[in-house]
Simulated scan of single mutants.
Amino acid sequence: MNKSKEDLLTFVMKNKRDISATMIENEDVVLDWNGDQKTPLASTVKLMVLFHFVKTVSSGDTKLNEKVALSDIERFYIDRTDGGAHTYWLEVNGFSEHATILDVAKGMMQFSSNACTDYLIDRLGLEKINDQMKQAGLIEHDELMPLTPMILWSAYVSDHEQDALKQMSGVSHEQYKSLMSEIFNIMKSDPEHKKILEEKTMEKDLLSFHIQSLLTQKMTKSTTNQYAQFMKRLHDELLTTEEKSLFSQIVLGETLKTEKDQYIWYKSGATLFVFTAALYRKTDTSSISISLFINDPKANNSHWIEEVFNEFMLTAAGDQNFRQRLIQAFTK
């Protein structure tokens, strides 16, 4: 392996067709490469759930110390499908039977637990999250869907990989929405059925390379232009000072701050086929907003990109020289 952020910079330079990037420094868009190209968002989409969550706390509809039974969150957990994020969240916190809803939000953002995310989507209401997004003017953004039901989709429609692929390939967007809603309801209210689907998924190899590729393409999509603008607008207009403080407390960033930083907000996401990230950094004298999406359709490089991606993004935000080289990688 031994790959570094320098290798990723070289990769970006050589594979510009499969990459989109937008960078806003202070008030100026200093980079916009394929900025309107829609890409599956992976976990970066969790920023939208957090945005709505913070608004419901602000309005008094959500109380941060509200107790949540871990068993209610477990309904949305599918073993061995989130890189250990959910288990790690549980281990680090050592909960007994309950967590606060603030803990659940941190589980979604700082640990990237999909189960915590789907619990919040269910608790807050998918329609309300999507409405909040529309009100904020995010027009280049697909509507959100729950994250975990798609993992059980192949097992829901078939016992065989090839047949599942065939059935999954032909569905319309409306059919897909309806299927995800059906599976989400099974996860919520029929644990036995969910368990059968989980076991079948693993035993029958119903998360094969080809099925994972198809699932990635079904994920909520958006653009780097939309996310770079959104991260900046969160600071400039979409959140009050109090809401920014709560957002900072929950999103990944507090542990990354230096003395110079007022705010640093970061969320990345990955599947075998895409890497996505959105980052905002504000100091006393400047602000930087960066969104970078990488498509790796054959998954030839995902094994090493994953190791260096976060360091690459954080270096771009903090090191002006590296940032200039990244801009030049696209403009040469």
Rank of each mutant, 00 (worst) to 15 (best):
Asn2Lys: 09
Lys3Cys: 01
Ser4Met: 03
Glu6Asp: 13
Glu6Met: 10
Leu9Thr: 09
Thr10Met: 07
Val12Lys: 13
Lys14Ser: 09
Asp18Val: 10
Ile19Glu: 08
Met23Asn: 05
Asp28Arg: 14
Asp36Ala: 08
Gln37Trp: 02
Lys38Thr: 03
Pro40Tyr: 09
Val45Ser: 15
Met48Thr: 04
Phe51Gly: 07
Thr56Asn: 10
Gly60Met: 01
Asp61Asn: 15
Lys63Cys: 04
Leu70His: 04
Ser71Pro: 08
Glu74Lys: 12
Asp82Tyr: 06
Asp82Ser: 03
His86Ile: 06
Leu90Gly: 08
Glu91Ala: 06
Val92Ala: 14
Asn93Glu: 00
Glu97Gly: 05
Asp103Leu: 04
Ser112Gly: 14
Asn114Glu: 07
Cys116Pro: 03
Asp118Lys: 01
Tyr119Thr: 10
Leu120Glu: 10
Ile121Leu: 03
Arg123Phe: 11
Leu126Ala: 03
Ile129Leu: 00
Asp131Met: 11
Gln132Arg: 13
Met133Trp: 00
Gln135Asp: 14
Gly137Gln: 02
Gly137Cys: 00
His141Glu: 11
Glu143His: 12
Met145Ala: 08
Met150Ser: 09
Ile151Gln: 11
Trp153Met: 08
Ala164Glu: 00
Leu165Lys: 11
Gly170Gln: 08
Gly170Trp: 03
Ser178Gln: 09
Leu179Gln: 13
Ile183Cys: 02
Phe184Tyr: 05
Ile186Ser: 02
Ile186Thr: 02
Ser189His: 12
Pro191Asp: 01
Leu197Ser: 07
Lys200Ser: 01
Met202Pro: 03
Lys204Pro: 02
Asp205Tyr: 06
Leu206Ile: 14
Ser208Asp: 06
Ile211Met: 08
Leu214Trp: 05
Leu214Gln: 12
Leu215Val: 05
Thr216Arg: 13
Gln217Lys: 12
Gln217Ile: 00
Met219Cys: 06
Thr224Arg: 04
Gln229Pro: 05
Arg233Asn: 15
Asp236Pro: 11
Glu237Ser: 15
Lys244Gly: 06
Ser245Gln: 07
Leu246Met: 10
Leu256Thr: 04
Lys257Trp: 04
Lys260Asp: 10
Trp265Met: 01
Ser268Asp: 11
Gly269Arg: 02
Ala270Glu: 14
Leu272Ile: 08
Leu272Pro: 00
Ala277Ile: 10
Leu279Met: 12
Arg281Val: 04
Asp284Gln: 13
Ile290Leu: 15
Ser291Val: 06
Asn295Met: 09
Asp296His: 03
Pro297Lys: 00
Ala299Glu: 10
Asn300Leu: 10
Asn300Glu: 13
Asn301Ser: 03
Asn301Ile: 10
His303Ile: 07
Phe309Trp: 12
Glu311Met: 03
Phe312His: 11
Leu314Val: 05
Ala317Asn: 07
Leu326Met: 11
Thr331Glu: 12
